[in-house]
Amino acid sequence: MQVDVVQWLFFGMLSVLVIGGALAVVTTRNIFHAALWLIVSLFGVGGLYVLLAAPFLAAIQVLVYIGAIVILIIFAIMLTRRLMGLREVPNNQWPFGLAAAAITFLVLSFGIILSSSGSTPLFASFREPVLAAVTSDSLRDLGVALVDPNQYALPFILASVLLEAAMVGAIVLAREEN
């Protein structure tokens, strides 16, 4: 099928973006460049969402991760006076980073393997054509799922409260003492 070929082609390209960008983030010595490579990687993830027929998540990915989080990281780099002068930042904490990455990888792998236990063979779910399963109005479904008590209303409210608490905390920390 032609569609499948194109889909796999794009999947390959996006994977190169995601993995290549991520590798560049951890290998480049210039911390500002690392932040920019992170954008490439996150943009690739956004592309993967498009491929999975989830345009809402793709837009949110670009908006939140690239538009907000990476900009925040870059701001932090720029406002740290010591870092601005340096073009190359030595890093002696990479063994810890490596350990954290390895543990995350193992946990995720276990998650995937466990979820495919029983009658479903491993990776079988990946081979199905993705687009067929998606309803035409996934955006509306998502919205309903977030406010439906039987689905994700409670986690959604909990996350909101957490974010609210973080915001209040930030304001309290930043407030000048009278």
Partner: peptide
């Protein structure tokens, strides 16, 4: 005619922010 059109242009607009930041730095 994206079904997230209104969100799309906000997301795309964040690249403008990035461009300014890159140019300045």
């Amino acid at each position: 005619d994206l079904n997230v059109g209104a969100l799309y242009f906000v997301a795309v607009g964040s690249f403008a922010t990035l461009a300014v930041l890159l140019a300045g730095w």
